[in-house]
């Protein structure tokens, strides 16, 4: 059922060697390839037939769900709407990701619109990797959206990465935080050639003592361009931090626009941003340990995106 190409894509986006254990839903070229539910995790197609609804029972602990999407059909632009309902007190990991293999000159694309409803005291770790492989010249587009709603004391950790091959990406992340809830978003993006990547983030700290931390690491190579926007809006006594770092190589262009809005007197919001070439002293240090210039650049970037 899985051919060699599928396996390669699954390995890169979801670290899967074969069909995973536990609950999963694998989508290939816009169709369902396989699905498994578990006692605590249910997966159903939504009423409109445009995606899936994943429901995690309250109190579910240490379980994971894999929901990779693979695309290898020229000319296909796949759009899905997925909803994740994480029950109270649950503690789960969701591994998503999209791999495109482009063999021809027709464009291929995927748009995953994901909504997360995280119940009281629940913890979610969401890992999403995007890659595109293949020799084809067709334009590969990935436009993911994640909308997160955190109930009281809920916690979400989102690791979003796009590490190569994607020609155009427009990402939208939004989050609304209830009292005592917290979110940590880490985005890692590497672009090269003529690639474009844009990320727009809107976080609203609605509840008292909510916390948001958004970290962006980007490497901009070749003639590529990356733009990163964050809007952090505080409507209660809360804490928010934005950290964006970009390494520019060759003729890369990067725009970073962090915005902080404190609409409450007890809001504490901070941001740090830096854009620049790899620091010379870092290169000198690694070369003096015996690495060549190119090896040093690679090691620094690997660490930066790790």
């Amino acid at each position: 059922m899985l051919d060699a190409l599928d396996k390669e894509l699954l390995k890169t986006v979801a670290d899967l060697e074969s069909i995973p254990k536990g609950a999963y839903n694998i989508r290939k070229n816009g169709k369902l390839l396989g699905r498994e539910v578990s006692a605590n995790i249910d997966i159903e197609s939504n009423a409109e037939g445009t995606g899936i609804v994943i429901t995690i029972k309250p109190g579910t602990k240490d379980e994971s769900v894999h929901i990779p999407v693979i695309l290898s059909q020229a000319g296909l632009h796949d759009v899905v709407y997925n909803t994740f309902i994480v029950g109270e007190d649950a503690d789960v990991t969701i591994i998503a990701g999209c791999g495109i293999h482009c063999g021809g000159s027709a464009p291929e694309g995927h748009e995953g619109i994901h909504e997360f409803r995280i119940g009281r005291n629940a913890r979610l770790k969401y890992v999403e990797k995007h890659v595109a492989l293949g020799e084809g010249k067709g334009k590969r587009t990935l436009n993911p959206t994640t909308n997160v709603y955190l109930d009281e004391n809920a916690y979400a950790e989102m690791e979003l990465s796009q590490l190569g091959g994607v020609d155009e990406a427009r990402r939208v992340n939004t989050a609304e935080l209830g009292p005592g809830s917290a979110i940590l978003i880490t985005e890692r993006v590497m672009t090269d050639g003529d690639q474009r990547a844009e990320s727009k983030n809107e976080l609203i700290l609605q509840g008292e003592d909510s916390k948001a931390n958004i970290v962006s690491r980007s490497v901009v190579k070749g003639d590529s361009k990356q733009d990163f926007f964050v809007n952090l809006e505080a409507r209660a006594k809360c804490y928010g931090h934005i950290e964006c770092d970009a390494i520019i190589m060759d003729n890369g262009i990067s725009e970073t626009v962090p915005a902080l809005k404190a609409l409450h007197p007890d809001a504490a919001l901070t941001h740090e941003a830096s854009i620049g070439k790899i620091a010379n002293d870092q290169l000198m240090k690694l070369m003096s340990l015996g690495l060549t210039y190119d090896e040093s650049v690679n090691r620094i970037i690997q660490g930066f995106l790790k």
Partner: peptide
């Protein structure tokens, strides 16, 4: 080059050490 001198057996501990992002002591 620096690299070749390092490989030839010279090592230099910087007065002002480089600080990285994401690189650990284990890596170095």
């Amino acid at each position: 080059s620096i690299t070749d001198r390092a490989r030839a057996g010279i090592a230099y501990g910087f007065q002002n050490s480089a600080r990285f992002k994401g690189t650990t002591f284990r890596d170095l």
